[in-house]
Amino acid sequence: MNNSVDSDTDIVSIQNLSFSRGDRKIFNDISLTIPRGKITAIMGPSGTGKTTLLKLIGGQLYPDQGSVIVDKKNVHQLKRSDLYTLRKRMGMLFQSGALLTDLNVFDNVALPLKEHTTLSDSMIRSLVLLKLHAVGLRGARDLMPNELSGGMARRVALARAIALDPTMIMYDEPFTGQDPISLGTLVKLIKELNNALGLTSIIVSHDVEETSSIADYIYILSEGKIVGQGTPEQIKTLDSEWVQQFMKGDADGPVHFHYPAENYHKDLFEI
């Protein structure tokens, strides 16, 4: 396992990370690395803190222990202004899109450019149209976020996330709740953007098929631990009942169908 901190090939390196919410340990001493220029997927059942992991990488949450190194900088020791500088180079696609509801599509994509650059209005316009064209929504520039379908909103958010040409982009459940066509479009876009722009992509997801079709490397999280990792082919042949149940989507297995409860017979007949 490659865990060296200063490796030039790794853009993100997480060392011995622990994080808890209240009494619940969400991560218990996990370490992982994300190689530059690749698509890395982090998978696991709902509620295992996959989104939390992205927020830890983005410096929105602070770990109890351990460190997160992004581009050779320890995210949680940076000054606020340095953290913001670092964030300009990371894009994040939220599950809900997180578009600003009081701005139209064009202004949403233009926002990071207006805030962080001194480009002229005509230059910003060209850039925004380029980004919108890349996600196929140049014609939707005047729509408001509430007029967009879920898939379109996510594509606009993607255009916004790449507006500042980041080196890394984090996708939070990009495939959840999408119809087959939007799903196909998103899978294609993520793959294409990663290759065309030389990005590093981190996908957090529990959609096994779509994610394994584009990921170069997969980490599987459960109960605060990494329970499996490898290329999609390696994962499929991994010798772990739990991972196999997750990848195949079986209803019963190491993860039981029933939530822990009293004996069924006893529960029904003893009042």
Binding site: Q60, G91, F94, S96, A98, L100, L111, H116
Partner: peptide
């Protein structure tokens, strides 16, 4: 805005929601 992650989205775009 908080519930729909707009504030957190702005933070991730390095835009301070307090300011904007």
């Amino acid at each position: 805005m908080k519930a729909t992650e707009q504030l957190s989205g702005m933070e991730m775009m390095a835009i301070d929601p307090i300011k904007r």
